[in-house]
């Protein structure tokens, strides 16, 4: 679906590039969590996947087409919800009327359904909405656009707790076999139940690129401290650990622990996930 090949990119010509010989491949029909520390390059990767940045080397291909060419057919198949966005002074209904014609697979029925989930009113002026309301409106439009690739950068920032639950419901409802949703976030707990695939990046390296099922089969998350644990974290309730899963049975995943384990033990993580 989307192929990133040997990507090289940096904001400054001096110093090390943000991405060097970076490769990644994402399939259709998945909700992908793009996780990483602040400054790891998550937003930059989102922009590169959308064709909003020109790589110094390498390519980002969506269904075999270089996204940087910004062909209308490609742009009509990708939607970005950036962390900071602007909406014009008009009602949501008017915004939809003006923008929907650009997206051939846009669905008014789907939009109404998402607006109902978020309890939003399409007639309300966008400028009079709070930041959270504007975000929910924009997310509704993005989901209803019907694009194959949906890129969301920190989508739950600014959403209250009930809205985060509504967000999860809307994402789950919008998924199809043809669609890939990439959610870049550092608030993993907001989306951990949604994810089919996890990508953890740090300093131009992919620390983890695996499906949730595979993660659950290769790792176990618990409170038992074992000698070969990848990661041990002390909590007021006692230690919590990430260890190799010797049973082979799928276990529930703790995304925060997974993230910390990948950052602290990248070599072991890589070795575990390349082992057959």
């Amino acid at each position: 679906m989307i192929e990133i090949k040997n990507l090289q990119f940096g904001y400054s010509r001096k110093g090390a590039p943000l991405f060097s010989d970076f490769s990644l491949s994402l399939s259709a029909g998945q909700v992908v969590g793009l996780l990483g520390k602040n400054g790891a390059g998550k937003s930059t990767l989102i922009y590169l996947m959308a064709g909003l940045l020109t790589p110094d080397a390498g390519q980002v291909m969506l269904r075999g087409v270089d996204v940087r060419r910004r062909l209308p057919s490609t742009l009509a198949d990708v939607f970005v919800v950036p962390e900071e966005f602007e909406l014009p002074s008009m009602s949501l209904n008017r915004y939809v009327a003006v923008n929907a014609p650009f997206y051939p697979r846009f669905s008014m029925e789907a939009l109404k359904s998402y607006l109902d989930i978020f309890e939003m009113d399409g007639a309300m002026p966008l400028k009079s909405m709070s930041m959270g309301q504007r975000k929910k409106s924009f997310i509704c439009f993005a989901l209803a656009s019907g694009t194959s690739l949906l890129l969301l950068d920190e989508p739950t920032n600014g959403l209250d707790i009930p809205s985060k639950s509504q967000f999860r419901k809307a994402i789950a409802q919008s998924m199809t076999d043809e669609r890939t949703i990439v959610v870049s976030t550092h608030q993993v707990r907001d989306i951990d139940t949604l994810l089919d695939h996890v990508v953890i990046v740090d300093r131009s390296q992919v620390l983890l690129d695996a499906g949730v099922r595979e993660i659950g089969q290769r790792l176990t998350f618990g409170s038992e401290v074992v000698p070969d644990a990848l990661y041990v974290q002390s909590t007021p309730l006692g230690p919590v650990t990430v260890s190799p899963n010797l049973s082979g049975l799928e276990t529930p995943i703790d995304m925060e622990l997974l993230f910390n384990a990948a950052l602290t033990q990248p070599a072991r993580m890589k070795e575990l996930f390349t082992r057959k």
């Binding site: 009509a76 939607f79 970005v80």
Partner: peptide, 13 residues
């Protein structure tokens, strides 16, 4: 930046 995303991502040449 938000405006640039909107303008550059608009499905047109």
């Amino acid at each position: 930046r938000g405006g640039r995303v909107d303008l550059l991502m608009m499905p047109a040449t």
